[in-house]
């Protein structure tokens, strides 16, 4: 009797404990399963203005506010998610089919909202902060990039790959860029670095400084930017300083020129060696000034312009080996 009572007395808490443990275990399993579930679905990446962008799932509706981002989306095979682009987004050809949400630098908020984007991609230079604030207030996440070098571009590609569920494509693109940069570095090794002026605009003269993306292209292409020390990315520049430093090459972005007009304009300054020796080159702004995967071709083009003999030399060097 007493024994059975005892057993009963013992039994009860035991059974209770057992249940508690089971319940806790189940709860634990549930939460971990949930947590795992969440972590597989929540995609996070930090952008270049200190925001952490997290998405519940792969976005199916994306708006791009810059030509380079539109191009990148196409490159990553995510063009089917694009539901809006700016008037300036003209590359690749398929971009024309995507609805416009207004001019570059001045997108139409109403049109952005009306296409119900799950993610908006923007580029920092020229972006009005109000747009980010307004969209954030409407619970639309805005990823803002600020590419200033090829390394930044590779990092951007990888982060966009995570956000857009195109990790592999992004990895491939980034690796391809890194590979071609490496080849370029080897080819340029030991070569003299000619002085270069990169004119973004000619009237008045606006140049790319060392902190700009174009400045980084000059460095990688084996040139010495005469405006390397400028504290601002792009700024007006004194012609006198150009005459003094007398760059060996002058590169001009063709943004504001039709055909050869900018090059012709510079020919007035016959004292410049670049003019004398025909080392003034006009570059396609749509290719060069857009940090997108295609820009690696621009980099190779600039390197070829600055080092016309490098390819032959490295080829003969290889044969020699």
């Amino acid at each position: 009797m007493s024994q059975s009572f005892l057993r009963k007395g013992l039994d009860k808490p035991l059974r209770f404990q057992h249940r508690l443990v089971t319940a806790l275990f189940l709860l634990h399993v549930c939460t971990t399963a949930l947590a795992e579930n969440v972590s597989t679905d929540l995609r996070c990446a930090s952008d270049d203005v200190g925001q952490q962008i997290c998405l519940q799932a792969i976005p199916h509706r994306v708006v791009s506010l810059a030509p380079n981002l539109t191009e990148t989306l196409f490159f990553l095979g995510a063009s089917d998610t694009l539901v809006g682009r700016t008037a300036r987004c003209n590359r690749p050809a398929g971009a024309a089919k995507i609805p416009q949400i207004g001019p570059y630098l001045h997108p139409d908020l109403e049109r952005i909202i009306s296409v119900k984007p799950e993610l908006v991609l923007a580029t920092k230079p020229g972006l009005r902060e109000e747009i980010v604030e307004r969209l954030n207030a409407l619970n639309i996440r805005v990823f803002v990039e600020d590419c200033r070098s090829m390394d930044d571009l590779c990092s951007l590609l990888r982060r966009l790959g995570v956000l857009l569920g195109r990790k592999e494509a992004a990895e491939t693109a980034a690796n391809d860029i890194q590979h071609r940069r490496k080849i370029l570095r080897e080819r340029l090794q030991g070569l003299a670095r000619p002085s270069v002026l990169f004119a973004v605009g000619v009237k008045p003269l606006v140049v790319a400084g060392g902190q700009s993306f174009l400045g980084s292209l000059i460095r990688e292409a084996g040139g010495t930017n005469i405006a390397e020390d400028l504290p601002i990315s792009y700024t007006r520049y004194s012609l006198e300083e150009v005459l003094k430093k007398d760059p060996e090459y002058i590169l001009i972005l063709d943004k504001e020129c039709k055909q050869q007009e900018c090059v012709d304009h510079l020919k007035r300054y016959a004292a410049l060696s670049a003019v004398q020796y025909h080392k003034v080159a006009s570059l396609d702004a749509d290719l060069v000034a857009r940090p997108a995967p295609g820009v690696i071709e621009a980099l190779e083009l600039i390197a070829k312009t600055l080092h016309p003999t490098a390819e032959k030399m490295s080829a003969s060097g290889r044969e020699h080996r």
């Binding site: 001019p103 570059y104 001045h106 605009g201 008045p204 003269l205 004194s238 012609l239 504001e256």
Partner: peptide, 24 residues
């Protein structure tokens, strides 16, 4: 300016602020 886009914005702005750098 608003209808034709902002490509030339910088040039126009500099023109309106006065510029002698291309004097001849």
């Amino acid at each position: 300016i608003s209808l034709t886009g902002s490509d030339e914005m910088q040039r126009i702005l500099y023109w309106m602020m006065g510029d002698f750098s291309f004097a001849d």
